[in-house]
Write a protein that binds this DNA or RNA. Structure first.
Lengths: 180, 180
DNA sequence: CAAACCATGTAAGCTGTTACATGATTTC
DNA sequence: GAAATCATGTAACAGCTTACATGGTTTG
């Protein structure tokens, strides 16, 4: 249900079209939604019906007309209310851990290849995330407090991948001891 | 689609009833599914239709009869095939990060309370996870290699929460600097 | 005697994904 | 001339969750 609030949050900074919002999701990792049209457009239509956003059609000469959405007072109030809800602990879903759980069925060689593949994949993500964080730093912020917050958010996922690589190293060491 | 493989994995150790599998999901964090009946029972019926598992009804005197499922040769082959698929990087979905992203709308006091709430929630999860890991260590393992693997899996989530608390500490320090 | 456990299953709903449909414009 | 971008939306399906339905047994 919270993609709605992520949208309201984006609109709290500036009016945006559905297309803009879609792009912002695709570029962000903290706002983890994939940014597909089926999530954004219907959500905006629903939010407008509930009076949390309002829209204005802007004609353009080169490109198709766009519907620019902005936050209403009710929308801002709803967003603030949601911000005060008790925070949840993060939920990680790792298909890899499920594979690893039954990996005793594999040979040593196959297990090693599996770990290699995972390390490479996580490492690629880490590099991508660092690049995203670098570009994120270009976006202007409302206050210096917001600067600090967004900096920390950008670092969050990179840190996650770094820890994952460390954990993997530990796993390898432990396995080497038992496999000889 | 991988709840199917998690079930096949469990059955690779020993025959189990749907109820057993449900409980095992509920007790595990690495196998992250909630363990609700609607996921387990239909999956088992489908797996049987596909010939990956077979079932036998066991009568009991005190309790209702149970259907005990076991892995077929085809099932074991399908599981091994899945284990060799290229591993994916973990995906974390943190509602908290979304809330934090727009938390510049809150007062310093409200933000502090939000961080307090998150810290407490993550800390509670950490303690629960450590307890789960402790109980996990009681379960017998097939090989010493499997022991090592399961030990590392049990430690994975605890480590995640520990890192999250460290990150939060860093966020607080950075905020104090800017808020004075 | 209430709550929890054993045991199987179904209904309804929310969230999220890929892919489709349309069509002009701009970049390589 | 193909691919990407701008722009809005829909269809179909996969995954997961809470709650419901049923009914005996055991524990506190």
């Amino acid at each position: 249900m919270s993609v709605r609030y992520a949208i309201l949050g984006m609109l709290s900074r500036q009016p945006l079209s559905g297309y803009d919002i879609k792009k912002a999701f695709a570029e962000s990792t903290a706002l983890y939604w994939s940014g597909n049209s089926n999530q954004v457009y219907p959500a905006l239509l629903a939010l407008r019906q509930e009076g949390l956003v309002e829209s204005e059609v802007q004609q353009q000469n080169r490109y198709p007309a766009k519907k620019v959405y902005s936050l209403t007072e009710e929308g801002l109030a709803a967003l603030k209310e949601w911000l005060l809800l008790p925070p949840e602990a993060p939920r990680t879903r790792s298909t890899f851990l499920t594979q690893l759980a039954w990996s005793d069925l594999l040979s040593s060689e196959e297990l090693r290849q599996m770990l290699d593949g995972y390390q490479e994949e996580v490492n690629t993500r880490l590099l991508m995330q660092r690049e995203k964080a670098r570009r994120d730093r270009m976006i202007p912020r409302r206050t210096s407090r917001e600067s600090v917050i967004w900096e920390q958010i950008a670092g969050h996922d990179a840190a996650l991948y770094e820890r994952e690589l460390e954990w993997l190293k530990g796993l390898r060491t432990a396995l080497e001891e038992v496999e000889g």
